[in-house]
Every structure is written in C-alpha cells, then in structure tokens.
Write a protein that binds this DNA or RNA. Structure first.
Lengths: 205, 205
DNA sequence: GTTAGCATGTAAGGAGTTACATGATTTT
DNA sequence: AAAATCATGTAACTCCTTACATGCTAAC
C-alpha cells in the first residue's frame, strides 16, 4: 500500500521515467512541480535516493562527460523494477491517490497511465473535494452563530477555491471522456471557454 | 520567535480568546477553520494543551454543568499570560506570519489585532505569493522545453490559483485602507468606493 | 580572487500522525 | 440493545526540516 512517504519515491520514479538525472536537478524539478507548498530539502531527497538504490529501483550511471568539466555528479536511472513499481503506484486507485499531495504528483505523470485510471483518479479527487465542501457547509449551518468577520471571510474564500477546483476537475473529466477517439484533424479551439489546455489529448509518450 | 510548532498554540489561544472550550470542541473548530489541508489529531492537540497548561498559558475551569449530564470534560480558559502571548504572536510581523499555515490562522483572528498589523501581514503575504509566481514563471521560460501536457496543465492551474489569491489579498488590503468591511469579491457592485483620507500612508507595494 | 551557485551528503531533532486504550452519553 | 459520537488520553513511529560539513566550478 502506498504510505505517505512514498510521495518522494513516486515523484523520483516519475521524473527519471522521462530521462536520467542527478539529485540536484531532481530537487529543482520537484520543487518547480510542487513548489506551491513546502520545498523539498536535500535532507530528505538524498536519503530517499539511497534507499531507492538499495531497493534496486534506480541505479547510478556514469555522468555524461561534458567535454570541459567532469564534476562529480551522480546520475540516476530507473531500473526495470523501478518502472514496474512506478506503474504499480500510478495504477493504485484509492484514498491515497487523491489526497492533496499525492494527487498533484499523480496528475503530473498522467501521461504514463491509462485513461481509465486517469478518470478514476480525477473522479475520486472530485468526490473528495465535494465531501469536504458538504461537510463544511453542514457544519457552518449548525454553528454559524458566533464566527467573526475575518474567520467568515476565510471560510468563504476557502469554499470558493474548492468550488473552483471542482470545476477544474469537471472540465478535465469531460475532456478525458470527449477525447476518446483521436481526432486526426487539429481541432480548432471552438469555444471561447477558458479551460486553457482543455484538450489534453491522450498522448502516449 | 514563532517556530513552526507554535501554530497549534496560536490557534488554541485564539479560539479560547473567544471563550472557554474543551479539547474536543477545540479540535472541531480548528478542523473547520483549517480543514482544507490536514486534520489535527488528538495525538497532537492534547499534548499541546498539557504543554500550555504547564506554561501557564491556559487553565482548567469547572465544566459548565448541564442539568442532566456531568460528563467529565475539561474546559480550558486563557490566563492573562496566555492573552499576552497571544497578542505577542499576533503582532509578530515577519516571514513566519505569511507562511501558508500561519497566515490562515493569523487571518482568522485578525479581529484581535490592529489594522496596522493586519495590513503588514496582508502585504507580506501578497509579496510572498508574487515572488513565488515570479520564480515559477522565470523558471518556466528557461526550462519550458520538455514538459508534458499534464504537468503543464497543473502548472497553469497553479499559477491561476495563486493569481486569484493575490487578487483576493489586494481586495482585502484595499478594504482595510478604505476602512470598508471586508466583503470583497462576493459583494454586489458597490456604488462608490469610500475614498477616505485613510490615516495609513500608502505603503508602496 | 572572491562571490555565487552547483553538487552531495549526515546528524539531530521537531512536529504531528497512527494506533492503541478507555469509557460515557445520545440517538436509532 | 446497538451504533454513533462524545471525550480524553498515551506510545511508537514516520517523515521531514534544520543545521552542519565539504568541495567543485563559473562568473565578475
């Protein structure tokens, strides 16, 4: 089962899945990817890499020798076992998949999964958020008595944000469902809808 | 200095500031207040309360005896020292005040602080978010090469969310300056902005 | 030549979760 | 009578951050 701490592991496997990399770069990419919350420190990345080495999920490879410099940097690569583990973790649908942090990571690597899984994760995430919303709104109705202005404003803003998130997920789900058949002709962006990258055709990379 | 773990302490002091309460209820209110992220467990709340008791920030008081039931529940109350500490923590402007978690707590208890502090915290928070935005966008321009669709969509959504947050803060700051009660984005088209000669000199952003 | 950033690590410790343990009270 | 939920706690454990330690390389 995917415990909480497997987040780094999944992230590392996912990034290395796109090509070999050394620790320092790994950390930068990770922080860019999840940089909205806490920042990953070396103190957790390097030990995690060591652990993954021991578990045989990744291996060290010779650093690409740039003509001029041969600085000691350790480049990592996923093993076959590592790829299998990555697939396994990505295929896990269940609570752990749609918790805040885990969801982001999974989403970022969606290209490496089946649409079926994607849909299940997106829908799970949406349900989770809707539950929260419901719970908070129930609670507010019962307890609304003595909340101060600022606390109330914080609540309001929170609810609004989550509702936004739900809409985002709904758009993505619709996009996944609608793009089942690959359209050969580049579809001209028909609606003026803001969905941004709405399309997201299922690219198998 | 306010270390990370003072978050619970501040929250407890803030809630008790509004009236005595027992642990169980404290936890519920806290989770409702910050319930968007992690949920506070008894395993951290009760030890925190004990610690605060020892530090003399709170005291036990006799449970309000509901006619029918006299269930053993321990009601806490802030001491004078506790209130002093609360004021001290709330007045602390600085990085710790505008980190994600700390900001929310502080904001929720804004009613208990001066407008000057409020403005400083709001502006600090906004700067922080803008820095992040800048950093990410710089990074994206340099590294934009090989990001996959989903990772890109996640980025886009993240940026949009933070931009929203910045607008929210700007509205709040404007409201504080104009001495308007905070009801920013949700408010119907307000007739005219109150353009008072606000006492606070417009701190340049 | 010196500052800034690249690059890798370790040790100690903090903060909070999980799981365990217990029992009273209200609701169905 | 059972189930839910109120109510309080403790112990072990996990994950991660902070701070320390080291040295290379690019740019100014």
């Amino acid at each position: 089962m995917a415990r909480r701490g497997d987040t780094i592991e999944l992230a590392v496997l996912g990034l290395l899945h796109e090509g070999p990399m050394h620790g320092y770069e790994l950390r930068k990419r990770l922080n860019l990817m999840l940089g909205w919350g806490r920042v990953l420190s070396y103190g957790s990345l390097y030990p995690a890499l060591k652990k993954m080495l021991r578990a045989n999920l990744i291996t060290e490879v010779a650093a690409t020798a740039t003509p001029t410099s041969r600085r000691p940097r350790i480049v990592y690569e996923v093993t076959e076992a590592g790829n299998a583990e990555f697939q396994r973790l990505m295929s896990e649908v269940g609570p752990t998949a749609w918790e805040d942090d885990n969801f982001d990571i999974r989403f970022a690597f969606f290209s490496s999964t089946d649409m079926e899984i994607r849909l299940r994760v997106l829908e799970g995430r949406r349900s989770r958020l809707q539950e929260r919303l419901q719970r908070v709104q129930d609670e507010l109705e019962r307890t609304q008595a003595e909340v101060n202005r600022y606390a109330a404003e914080l609540q309001r803003h929170g609810v609004e944000s989550v509702e936004r998130e739900v809409r985002w997920l709904s758009d993505l789900i619709r996009a996944e469902r609608g793009d089942v058949t690959p359209a050969p002709s580049a579809s001209p962006p028909s609606p003026a809808r803001v969905v941004g990258g709405a399309g997201i055709p299922p690219t198998h990379d």
